[in-house]
Amino acid sequence: TSSVSANFDLKTYWSTLREEINQKLDEAIPVKYPAQIYESMRYSVLAKGAKRAPPVMCVAACELLGGNRLAAFPTACALEMVHAASLIHDDLPCMDDDPSRRGQPSNHTVFGMDMAILAGDALFPLGFRHIVSHTPPNLVPETQLLSVINEIARAVGSTGMAAGQFVDLEGPANAIEFIHEKKYGEMSECSAVCGGLLAGANDEEIQLLRRYGRAVGILYQVVDDVLEAKSSKTDLVEDEKLQKEKKGKSYVSVYGVEKAVQVAEDLEAEAKNALEGFKKYGEKVLPLYSFVDYAGHRGFSFADQ
């Protein structure tokens, strides 16, 4: 399949940004007193396996609309902080009860449940504070920064990711679309929109980024479900697969592979369709195009994952 982004080297673009984001996150959470809480926060935020998709999408959207990437970095870091906070709480025994995350034991298994709850509670405000204290004032007007904070708070809140997690845990049944949209689409949508807001995008452009980000986030997860269903790996993976299917958390277990593949194709088309609105920006749209291809086909992986 020929792709618009065939000539764009997403892997290099992504890897370079990822390193920069990792360094900035490292600097953003120095260990102070009481050390336990900082260690716990750092453990999850700086996890080696993190791909940094939300921050990279935020930076790419900002640059597409003519923004300076320096304007986007603090928000990009904040997205990782609030994302990590959500994941730490999602993994708790009374929630998803996940013993591992990003290739390492989950936060509460290392630091205890109480510290895991508090680390999450501290990472949310740290994200907001980081945006205010680190965004260069000459690059982003204050009203836009308020919109960014509002966007992130809404995305993680009671009608966003928290709603997705709630429905995932307590039903109703057959809510796989809602769960995927809220648990996975929301963060991706928020990342693209924040990048646009930081660059001063107009309302129409923000709407396009919203559609684009949401479609890419859900696409990534649906393809994940398909790949997982098709893979025949070790017993451990088999166990996790069964677990997921039992809980009705996989798109494939609800609709079957064929329908899931169809949904993935539709989402891919939807994301690319939204990007048509950015044609006038020429090649600058390539990073966002290649993101869709990556979410749909996983053209590469990171060495240290």
């Binding site: 959500s86 709480h89 929630m95 509670d121 405000p125 308020l146 904070i149 009671s158």
Partner: peptide
């Protein structure tokens, strides 16, 4: 409401506090 809702409800209140001030 159960532990899971108490955690999520708390997280949502935390995020909403900032949203409320900002908007």
């Amino acid at each position: 409401y159960g532990e899971q809702v108490a955690i999520l409800g708390g997280d949502a209140l935390l995020a909403f506090a900032f949203e409320h001030i900002a908007t």
